[in-house]
Amino acid sequence: MSGWLAILLLTAAVNPPRRRRELPIDAAVVAAGAGLTLAVLLGVGAVGDRLLDTLDISAPTFRVAVGMVLLVRGVIDMVSRPPGPGAEWSGMKGAIVPGFFPVLFRPEIALTAMSVAVDGGVGIMSVGAAVALFLVVASVLWLHRFDRALSIVLSATLIVLAVDRLVDGVFAL
């Protein structure tokens, strides 16, 4: 897997313009949440190979699973309005709830990170995740218009990439 594909895949899975609506408006809190998420994703990526081995799951089958989850996520994101902010811990603790969980550390993001790490290596995954999470912070800071349109574009991109993952997994030796 190329670095560009990893960045695109993780960015589409994270969908920064959509996540922006669910996050606190304090960029420092969001940045802390993004940093925490990145750290956990690095851990997920690092143990990905071993976890799949332990669970007797091959990389192509995992790719199929990730493709299916991303496809569902892409379609839901495309057709539904983003939810508003949910429960929020006060102050910097907002980096944990809702920053880290439930907004940024989501199943589709964790699964995508693990899949990218298994297929392309933890290095590529970490670059892709860092870019995607940086764009979340950038969205909170600077994106005040067109966020819905950008979100739809990324959802459409996610659907295309999900199908690519699915086909790649199904027809892999």
Binding site: I57, T61, A65, G86
Partner: peptide, 23 residues
Amino acid sequence: MGVIVWVAVTVGLRLFILQPERC
């Protein structure tokens, strides 16, 4: 809600897509 989604996705995948490949 976030917890429910995590549980549904992981359990659903394991049961129906990511069944162990017993070689």
